[in-house]
Each structure stands twice: as C-alpha cells, then as structure tokens.
C-alpha cells in the first residue's frame, strides 16, 4: 500500500493510479519446504519489507514476540493465525496473504511444513502458479523439501524457486 502512496501525492494523480490498478495482473504463489526452514518467517518479512503490514497488526505481533527467541519481531506470527499454531510455533494450515507492488498484485499461500499436514500444503499449492521451496542451509535438502517440490510439479506448477535460508 505504502509503495503505491508515492503515486498519490496530488489529487489529480488518482485517476491515473486507478487506471494503473486496472491494468495490474495477479500472481498467486506458495511457499514450500520442510518444517522450521523459515516459510512463514519469509512471508512475514516480505510483507513487512514491502510495507504491507498495518501498524496495529505489527503492534500485536511485537507484543506477542516477547520471549519467543526470534528477535524483536517474530515474523511468523503474522501468518500463523490460529491459536494452536502460535502456541506450538508451527504452521498447521495454509494461510493466505495479500500484497501489491506498483506493477502487480500477489496472493501468497503460506503452507505448513510438517509431514502430517502435507494435505494442507497441497490445498495451498493447488491454486498457485509459482512455488518457493525454502531450504535451510544448515540442514540441506530434507525429505519434505523433495516431497513438496514433487507435489508442486505433480499439481502442474511450472515455476519453482529454490531459496536457500
């Protein structure tokens, strides 16, 4: 949102902003990879850095980050929306988040890494056009990394990005 605000300093710019908005296309992507390799944190960070997090949301996450051993802001809390997820520090089900840049709109599906929640990852990946497979450099490729990459290709995703954390 804030990225777009630069375009809107004067009133007369609004019509062209709207015109620009009308031309935007939509990319749906998903995160994949093993548990604790940083999927939710990456999404949280992406939203934060592209200034798509509202102040009151950030305040509540900063407050909740105390004692979680993940720095001043635990970015995973931005997408882990269920109480059970926050208590256990894991993602159980897919969360959808939305953000925009001046060129494009994005829908992100943040999916769980746990093996037992693989079916929820499938749900999230099925509507995506691109998958980011996160790999923790300390652990290398794990069975879940390969499984998620395989499921993504099985679902017909043509674009895979491997991100080393």
């Amino acid at each position: 949102m804030a990225a777009a605000s630069v375009l809107l300093e004067a009133d007369e710019v609004l019509p062209s902003f709207l015109e620009l908005e009308q031309q935007k296309d939509l990319l749906r992507f998903t995160t994949a990879g093993s548990v604790d390799d940083g999927k939710s944190t990456l999404i949280g960070r992406l939203l934060y850095d592209s200034r798509n997090v509202y102040e009151d949301q950030l305040e509540s996450v900063t407050k909740a980050s105390v004692g979680r051993n993940a720095g001043a802001i635990d970015f995973s809390l931005l997408t882990d929306g269920l109480r059970a997820e926050r208590e256990q520090g894991i993602t159980i089900d897919v969360a959808y988040r939305y953000f925009a840049t001046p060129r494009r709109k994005f829908i992100i599906a943040d999916t769980p890494g746990h093996e037992q929640y693989t079916r929820n990852m499938v749900t999230g990946a099925s509507t995506a056009e691109l998958a980011i497979v996160l790999v923790d450099a300390r652990k290398g490729l794990l069975p879940q990394s390969r499984r998620h990459a395989y499921i993504s290709s099985l679902l017909g995703l043509r674009h895979l990005v491997v991100a080393i954390n």
């Binding site: 931005l78 997408t79 882990d80 929306g81 269920l82 059970a84 159980i92 089900d93 897919v94 969360a95 959808y96 988040r97 749900t123």
Partner: peptide, 22 residues
Amino acid sequence: ERSRAKERVFSFRDTKGQWDPR
C-alpha cells in the same frame, strides 16, 4: 483478520454449526 486468512472457501460446519480449524 488472521484466523479468517486460514479458512477454506467452502468451510465445513458440524451439526452444531461449529468450525474445527484443525
């Protein structure tokens, strides 16, 4: 809202009308 971000498009409710997010 962040728990709404977790819900399916077609969201199942049991006979008591309740949602089981897990």
